[in-house]
Simulated scan of single mutants.
Amino acid sequence: MDTAGATEKARQGGRERSRRVPRRRAGRLGPRTRKAVLIVHIAASGAWLGLDLVLGILVATALLGGDGAALAVAVAAFATWPMVAVGALTLASGVVLGLGSRYGLVRYRWVLVKLVLNVVLVFLVVVALSPQVGALAGEGRAALASGGDLAFDPGMLFPPVVSSTAVAFAIAISVVKPWGRTLRGRTAVEGPAH
């Protein structure tokens, strides 16, 4: 009888342990929060890729003989600030994921590459693309008002090709997770070298 009681206690103790929620490390996101931030991150990067592709299609259409003036105004409607918004949202959600997960921001090379790509692309949209698109939009509005047409500079195809390639690459390395840990990531796991 005594062994039956001990067996029952052991079984109950086992059930109790299996119901316990494993403790998270300080600063880590909980599973639900991590999934919510990950969904935002994926949606924002997908929206960014979509905006880049649409920009490329509009520019290619203008270069192939479409109504350049109307297309210039259409490009200006979404080519800068919506791209900055989704780029910033991608960056912010990526930083939250990095800081709140085992991957960190600088522990793995693929995460670091994504971070650098994101910062560089948002910077280029603000510094390089925005003034160019602003000038193009002004010329497009003037051409529409005068009834004329506008010829696009073939160089306008460069930003959406580079950006969409970089965003697609960032998405791909998120899935594949190539390369290894950075020097800082190895040091954090192994401890400092003496």
Rank of each mutant, 00 (worst) to 15 (best):
V59P: 07
A36C: 00
T7F: 11
R24G: 03
L157M: 10
G148H: 08
A43F: 13
A166T: 09
L144F: 01
M156W: 07
G87T: 06
T165Y: 04
V162R: 00
A135L: 12
L58N: 13
V73L: 02
A36E: 04
T187Q: 10
A62I: 09
L55S: 15
V167E: 03
L136F: 07
A60R: 12
V40T: 15
D153V: 09
L124R: 11
P131S: 05
S163L: 11
L51Y: 15
G68I: 09
A60Y: 09
A44R: 10
Y108Q: 11
L29E: 04
V162K: 00
G5H: 02
F123R: 00
R17I: 08
V96N: 01
E139K: 14
W81Y: 14
V59F: 09
S130Y: 07
P160Q: 08
L55Q: 15
K114S: 13
L105E: 03
G155K: 12
V40F: 00
P160G: 08
W81C: 06
F123Y: 09
H41I: 10
V119L: 13
A143M: 09
G27P: 07
A70C: 02
R109A: 09
R28I: 00
T80I: 00
L136T: 05
P159C: 01
L112Y: 04
D67Y: 06
T7A: 15
L51H: 09
P160C: 08
R102G: 12
T182R: 02
A135D: 15
L91N: 12
E8T: 13
G98D: 04
P154K: 10
I171E: 01
R24T: 08
L55W: 15
L38Q: 11
G191L: 11
L99K: 11
E8C: 04
Q12N: 11
G138M: 05
R32C: 02
A70E: 09
V73R: 12
L29H: 03
L144D: 07
R23N: 01
L150F: 08
R17S: 10
R181V: 02
S18M: 06
Q132Y: 03
K114M: 14
G138H: 04
G46L: 12
I39D: 14
V86Q: 05
V162W: 08
A26H: 11
G104R: 03
P159N: 02
V37K: 10
A77Q: 11
R107Y: 01
V84F: 01
L29T: 01
L99H: 05
Q12W: 07
P159K: 01
L144W: 01
D52E: 15
G185N: 10
V21E: 13
V96H: 03
S130N: 15
V54E: 08
F158Q: 06
P82Y: 05
R34H: 14
G5K: 13
V106R: 09
Q132F: 04
V113I: 15
R186G: 14
P159T: 07
P160K: 10
M1F: 01
R25N: 13
S101R: 05
P159H: 05
F152G: 10
A170R: 03
A168V: 08
E16L: 14
V133K: 02
R15I: 05
S93R: 05
L183T: 10
S45D: 12
A44E: 10
L136S: 09
A137K: 14
L38T: 13
A188G: 06
Q132L: 14
L157K: 03
G13H: 03
P154R: 12
A170G: 11
A168P: 06
A135N: 11
W81L: 13
S45N: 15
I173H: 02
F169W: 14
V59E: 07
R28H: 15
